[in-house]
Simulated assay, not measured.
Amino acid sequence: MSIFTTKGGQVYQLHQLTATVNLYDAPTGDRLATQGAAGRFLWVSALESERTYVQLAEDDYWGWLDQGDYRHLTPATEPYQPIARDRAYIEAVLEDVIAFCLAAQEAPHEYLWGGTVAPNYDCSGLMQASFASQGIWLPRDAYQQEAFATPLGSNSIAETLPQLQRGDLVFFGSREKATHVGLYLGQGQYIHSSGKEYGRNGIGIDTLFPSEDPVSIAYQRQFRGGGRIEYSYLPLTPHP
């Protein structure tokens, strides 16, 4: 039995991915928006000739799927069932979340905008993948993760540091919006995937403490605050 839902007068069918696919932020396919790993669920309307606008079920994230990847879609026979995770569960697996990030750092990789699947990640993609490895879903982008997390501190590092615990998120960006995120390791250190402009073109560990390292300094200037993950994201998309 196929699974369908209706949104805005449009009928969507639930599919499951049989391989990793790329989703783009425009129908032209010029820039990667996110990736869907094998096994993830996807809401799909009628497939178009070149690219189709689809929605990942686990985090409600939209993107354009290339025609060449339609072969990796198979109609789901059972509804996607999100699993609620509370803070007690999250605390029990935080060391495994951190271990995922550290292992990703050790594998050959580089920074990939939109990357959520090994080996190449962007900042929020690494956070999402590390928590998802333990069955905890986060929203996709850094600003969405900041809004989802319980706030800790402010744009003052001195105010925020005493409130941070190992496994919390730390956010960076402009006054208006978070554009970068890392995972706090304790002792002022955090692990993150950063690009070439300010970062290391990949996953590295930096500090919130005073430093002479140019990457740490660059992100300290963009610091926005911390956030604690108290529960797993539950999708807004209506499920039959």
Rank of each mutant, 00 (worst) to 15 (best):
residue 11 V to D: 11
residue 14 L to M: 07
residue 17 L to Y: 06
residue 20 T to D: 09
residue 28 T to K: 11
residue 29 G to E: 10
residue 33 A to I: 02
residue 36 G to D: 00
residue 40 R to F: 01
residue 43 W to C: 14
residue 49 S to A: 15
residue 49 S to D: 15
residue 51 R to V: 07
residue 51 R to C: 06
residue 51 R to S: 09
residue 53 Y to D: 07
residue 54 V to E: 08
residue 60 D to C: 14
residue 60 D to E: 13
residue 62 W to C: 06
residue 62 W to V: 07
residue 62 W to M: 15
residue 68 G to A: 13
residue 71 R to P: 04
residue 73 L to Y: 03
residue 79 P to C: 10
residue 87 R to K: 13
residue 87 R to V: 13
residue 90 I to F: 00
residue 101 C to L: 00
residue 104 A to W: 00
residue 110 E to P: 07
residue 122 D to E: 03
residue 122 D to R: 09
residue 123 C to F: 03
residue 126 L to E: 02
residue 127 M to E: 02
residue 129 A to E: 00
residue 129 A to S: 03
residue 131 F to M: 02
residue 131 F to S: 05
residue 132 A to M: 10
residue 135 G to T: 05
residue 144 Q to F: 13
residue 145 Q to T: 05
residue 156 S to P: 14
residue 157 I to H: 03
residue 159 E to F: 02
residue 161 L to H: 07
residue 166 R to Q: 04
residue 168 D to A: 09
residue 171 F to G: 08
residue 174 S to R: 11
residue 177 K to P: 02
residue 181 V to F: 01
residue 182 G to H: 01
residue 184 Y to A: 02
residue 194 S to D: 03
residue 196 K to T: 15
residue 206 D to R: 01
residue 208 L to T: 04
residue 209 F to E: 12
residue 212 E to G: 14
residue 225 G to T: 00
residue 227 G to W: 01
residue 228 R to L: 02
residue 230 E to R: 06
residue 235 P to A: 08
residue 235 P to R: 03
residue 235 P to F: 09
residue 237 T to I: 11
residue 240 P to K: 00
